[in-house]
């Protein structure tokens, strides 16, 4: 943490941290405190008077089936995105790890979705699955699937999950590949000599050895699905149909900017902050554990 030697005391270090601290205070701490404060207030319909109501906003939120619904939906959405993208990534990484020649070419071809903005990823998938024009929708007709995600909530959810997972595969793939490549070759060879075939080796040797990476990626993917998928939802479904794809982040935005419910939106923000803090703590606990591993 600390260097043995330091520069002599002066005003310089304060000047050096000043920009970062100023921006943190103005754009992070102040708004967060504001959100916390507003979450205890109720404003009347005309914005004329406000009343301090303690936890009433929170109470109302958790009694609101719309909100609890969004909560569960978000959990399902994150779980599905993480599962889908992690399984695809680990399979691809497992095979890529076997490739002797051309591994970097494969890597290059697999990682670029990371660079695509969520809203663009959403646009691409919305286009492919467009009910009237989409190329996949057209193909689905042949197997008698009546595809219209604009009216069918389940289909809408499936579509945003696919788009979100697709974008995240690249990231997970990179981390899995790095983890697998750092397993000493001799361990794999020892298992082979013990008579374990490739599939058995994968489940009994490689999979357990990359489990710290799996755990780390689970947290990262959860954070991604919670917050970074706003663009995908906004591009594909705008939370619809009938709120079928309204996840928490989308609801904060919708209630705050469209519905103009300041207190409620602030209370939602506060809950989200608590979630991020929890995830950050888990993530840091993991890092400490990984050092021992």
């Amino acid at each position: 943490m600390l260097k043995r030697v330091h520069f002599p005391p002066s005003i310089l270090p304060y000047l050096l941290v000043a920009p970062q601290v100023a921006i943190t205070l103005i754009f992070f701490i102040w708004p967060a405190a504001e959100a916390l404060y507003q979450s205890f207030l109720i404003e009347d319909a005309f914005g004329l008077s406000t009343e301090f109501v303690w936890f009433e906003n929170f109470d109302a939120l958790f009694k609101d089936p719309q909100y609890t619904g969004a909560f569960l939906r978000t959990a399902f959405f994150s779980g599905a995105v993480a599962f889908l993208s992690l399984s695809l990534a680990i399979v691809l990484a497992g095979f890529a790890d076997r490739v002797v020649r051309g591994a970097t070419v494969y890597r290059t071809l697999l990682i670029w979705p990371y660079a695509i903005a969520p809203v663009l990823a959403g646009a691409l998938w919305a286009f492919m699955f467009n009910p009237t024009l989409g190329i996949i929708s057209y193909a689905l007709e042949f197997i008698n699937v009546d595809w219209n995600y604009k009216v069918n909530g389940r289909q809408a959810m499936a579509l945003v999950i696919m788009a979100a997972a697709w974008k995240q595969v690249a990231y997970n793939f990179l981390f899995y590949l790095a983890a697998m490549q750092s397993i000493p070759k001799s361990v794999i060879e020892a298992a082979a000599i013990d008579g374990a075939g490739p599939i058995r080796r994968f489940w009994t040797i490689i999979f357990p050895l990359v489990s710290p990476t799996t755990f780390f990626l689970l947290v990262i993917n959860a954070v991604y699905a919670f917050f970074d998928t706003f663009g995908i939802i906004d591009a594909v479904t705008q939370g619809g149909p009938a709120n079928a794809t309204t996840i928490l982040v989308y609801k904060v935005y919708n209630d705050g900017f469209v519905g103009l419910d300041l207190g409620g939106s602030a209370a939602q923000s506060v809950i989200l902050m608590a979630l991020v803090i929890a995830m950050t703590v888990v993530q840091f606990r993991f890092i400490e554990k990984k050092v021992e591993y």
Partner: peptide, 24 residues
């Protein structure tokens, strides 16, 4: 200062949009 900076990790823009918007 170190912890102050650390806190920003826990405040992604998505969770504080409305108040940040007001500040800006």
């Amino acid at each position: 200062f170190f912890w102050l900076i650390f806190i920003t990790l826990m405040l992604p823009v998505e969770v504080r949009i409305l108040p940040t918007f007001e500040v800006v």
